[in-house]
């Protein structure tokens, strides 16, 4: 079942068209990474899912219910973590979460019980300071706690890790992985390594539409480039290797940088052996022979080319 469906969404700010025809669906219990450059429209899309912005066209459904701009009833199914969450600095974390719990319709007792679980989970248990003295990472963790308060069907995180140091980033990603056991996560970012770490499906937002959409593993397979990198001991050997390779028909292209040669070839399993034969025939010693995995970065750059 799809927790979130976005159909033909359009949005422009004045003459600037941000989203031209955005379509995607997020199925239950997946972690969906929405990738795009800064200013690609990720935050805009998320704010429309929350009913904070009015789409110029199209419709959005959360758990089958239409999202209505303004007073948005579907928000009771959603937990939202803004990119830079703003809290009331004069409250303590517990006071803030209690307020959110009451707003979202939990009873006093329910809120209290749930907080006993939630505060240790996000590492804010026993912290009695007011929020204005919190670090960015602490605020982000508090943000996750408030997003999880209503046990949402859909957790929306907007650039949750962008403003954090590596340690804070790891904490948040780990938290999101834990959260994904209970809920569905929509995660926007421009940091590809974060996506590779936790997401199982992705959508690549480019020029107002999804340029790419699907399971991360499938996308990687589709865009797999048959690439081998061979490292020799010195540049002379590399040059020699390059000459030998250029003569072969199954080689698409070969490039050398210092003592390593990067080769693109057809059918690497069969033809890779030929290269190894050649290496031994020509008596070229090697340091390293490596089949290159397609990185998301290459896919990304390929698609938006």
């Amino acid at each position: 079942m799809n927790v979130l469906e976005v159909r033909h969404i359009q949005k422009n700010f004045g003459r600037h068209q941000v989203l031209s025809d955005l379509n995607f669906a997020v199925s239950e219990h997946s972690i969906f990474g929405l990738i795009g450059k800064n200013g690609a429209g990720k935050t805009t899309a998320m704010k429309m899912i929350l009913g904070f912005l009015r789409p110029a066209g199209g419709e959005i459904r959360v758990c089958g219910e239409n999202v209505i701009y303004g007073n948005t009833a579907t928000n009771r199914l959603i937990g939202y973590l803004p990119d830079v969450p703003e809290f009331y600095g004069y409250m303590t974390a517990r006071e803030y979460l209690t307020m959110c719990g009451r707003i979202t319709g939990l009873t006093k007792l329910q809120t209290h019980e749930w907080l006993q679980e939630l505060l240790p989970l996000v590492g804010l248990d026993g912290i009695k300071r007011r929020i204005h003295s919190f670090s960015r990472g602490m605020k982000q963790r508090l943000g996750i706690a408030q997003a999880l308060l209503n046990k949402p069907r859909l957790l929306i995180c907007d650039e949750a890790t962008s403003a954090l140091d590596p340690k804070g980033r790891k904490e948040i990603l780990d938290l999101l992985s834990v959260a994904a056991d209970q809920t569905t996560v929509l995660f926007s970012t421009h940091i590809l390594s974060d996506v590779e770490r936790i997401c199982d499906s992705i959508g690549l937002l480019h020029e107002g539409r999804l340029a790419l959409h699907g399971k991360l593993s499938e996308i990687k397979n589709t865009y797999r480039k048959e690439t081998v990198r061979i490292e020799t001991l010195n540049e002379a050997q590399a040059r020699h290797l390059l000459e030998c390779l250029d003569a072969r028909s199954f080689i698409q292209s070969a490039e050398r940088s210092q003592s390593s040669v990067t080769v693109q070839l057809h059918d690497p399993q069969k033809n890779g052996l030929k290269i190894i034969d050649m290496l031994s025939n020509e008596q070229i010693p090697i340091l390293n022979y490596e089949l290159l995995e397609p990185s998301l970065e290459n896919v990304f750059l390929d698609v938006i080319k």
Binding site: L50, F52, N75, Y80, P82, Y88, C100, T104, G105
Partner: peptide, 9 residues
Amino acid sequence: TLIIPLSKG
């Protein structure tokens, strides 16, 4: 600061 309370319904 209203974004979170509003997103909570």
